Simulated assay, not measured.
Amino acid sequence: MNIGQSLLDKSQQVIQDWISSVDQEESIQSSHDLSRQAMLDSLPNLLKAMARTLDDQSATDLQQLAETGVEHGNHRAEQGFNAEEVATEYRLLRQVILTHLEADLLQLPQTQLLSSVRKIDLLLDVVIGQCFKCYADNRLRELEDIRGQMLLTNQELDRLITSQQEDIVHLAHDLKSPLTAIIGFSDLFLRQQRKSEQDSSSPQNLRSIEQVLGNARRLLHIINDALELARYRSGKLKLTPAPNSVALLLDEVVAALEPLAQRKNLDLKINNTFPEQAIWIDALRFQQLLTNLVSNAIRYTETGSVTITCQQQAEDRFTLSVTDTGLGISPEEQAHIFEPYYRGEHGLQLSDSTGLGLAIVAQVVELLRGKISVQSNCEQGTTFGVELPLQWAE
């Protein structure tokens, strides 16, 4: 019985069953937004190399296995997988391979059966080791990049301190928790590395890296939102209007936010009756406005839908609205939602809420010479309406 040839013959079914297993695995969330090709990654090459090596464990095939592990680690780091998700992928792959080879393996003498199973485990361990080493290296490089960005944004914050004293007080309060986590996990990671020169891809080290990266990203999000608001208030932002298609701008925003809605099984819809004509508008600021409103609607909606409606209101005006079926906003909170750093009852329960999103929206609308309104009832959803001019005049 040639186990290597059997694996090669069944490789397509192994791939199909593995993809189905990953799709059904609730603990692997990062794969849900990937195409089939992105999911496959280097798996076909891995199975071919394993099949050859099961017949003849040559150095060339082991090198090929190591290379597939490196490629997989690079891709999963770029796609935002965490360490547990990658480990689960390999656990499922091991199960699928052994399931498909079980009948063939049972035909072998006992000693040869054990030898073949051990060899399969060894080959997968070679791939896993290279994958996690490369994955950890990518995460460390990303951490270093974030550190550089934080240094740059910190310098800009220093320049704004004198003119933004009140905002800085609020900002410092929001920065305290994630910054403490960054310092704590970074210190733990460094102390572990100093005690041992072992491979930095151990599960505990990887979890520490993930904690640092998650909190660092949140910190940068808070800082960038605060800086954006400061730029609006200082009057340093200038519009660059140009002819743009509203339909195209809407489609681009929906394409970018569709994965967020899919993760919560929300229906993200566009209801656009705006005439097919180009209007003069700053595309970047228009999409920033829409992105903030839609992402906010998704964040506070657990079931149902988020609908974007666009229509011409008059000869010189058009309206844009974002309606959700979410938690709603009480009348008392509606009077404060556009204030910087204000977070209502629901916002205080979310770790990624900075209280700056709607304040930035209000500033963008003002910059675009428009008007914004809100209609909402608790537990009945919310509609944010924006009225903007069709033509830009200096």
Results as ranks from 00 to 15, higher is better:
N82V: 14
L249K: 11
T111M: 08
T180K: 14
E228Q: 14
L46V: 06
L289C: 07
K269M: 06
I209S: 07
L8F: 12
I97E: 03
L46P: 01
R139W: 04
D145L: 15
R369V: 01
R299A: 11
E25L: 05
L152P: 02
I3E: 03
K195Q: 14
A283V: 02
K269N: 13
I372N: 00
L290R: 08
L113C: 06
R231W: 08
I15G: 03
Y135P: 11
V364P: 04
V70K: 13
E394I: 10
A83C: 05
T323R: 10
D33P: 00
L268E: 04
L250P: 04
L358Y: 05
S376R: 06
A335M: 15
K119Y: 03
P203M: 01
L239H: 00
A393F: 08
D104R: 11
G344S: 09
Q164D: 14
V361C: 10
I183R: 11
K10E: 01
A77C: 06
E89M: 13
A247R: 12
G214N: 12
S177W: 09
S196K: 15
Q287N: 07
S202W: 01
L348M: 11
I223M: 08
T291L: 05
F286K: 08
D121N: 12
G355W: 03
H75V: 08
Q63D: 10
Q198F: 09
R191C: 01
S321F: 04
L93M: 13
L206I: 07
A283S: 15
I222M: 07
A230E: 05
H32S: 13
I372G: 04
E78N: 12
Q363Y: 01
I329W: 03
R217D: 06
D33N: 14
L54T: 08
C134A: 09
I360Y: 01
N154P: 03
A181D: 13
V22N: 04
H173S: 14
D251A: 13
L171M: 11
D324W: 05
I183H: 10
Q130Y: 11
I279T: 02
D41K: 12
V365M: 02
L92H: 15
E142C: 07
Q13F: 06
Q63M: 12
L43E: 03
Q363M: 12
A38T: 14
I97S: 04
N215H: 12
I308D: 04
R263G: 04
Q349P: 00
I161Y: 13
Y341E: 04
D167T: 07
T240V: 09
Q16C: 00
R231S: 08
L257V: 10
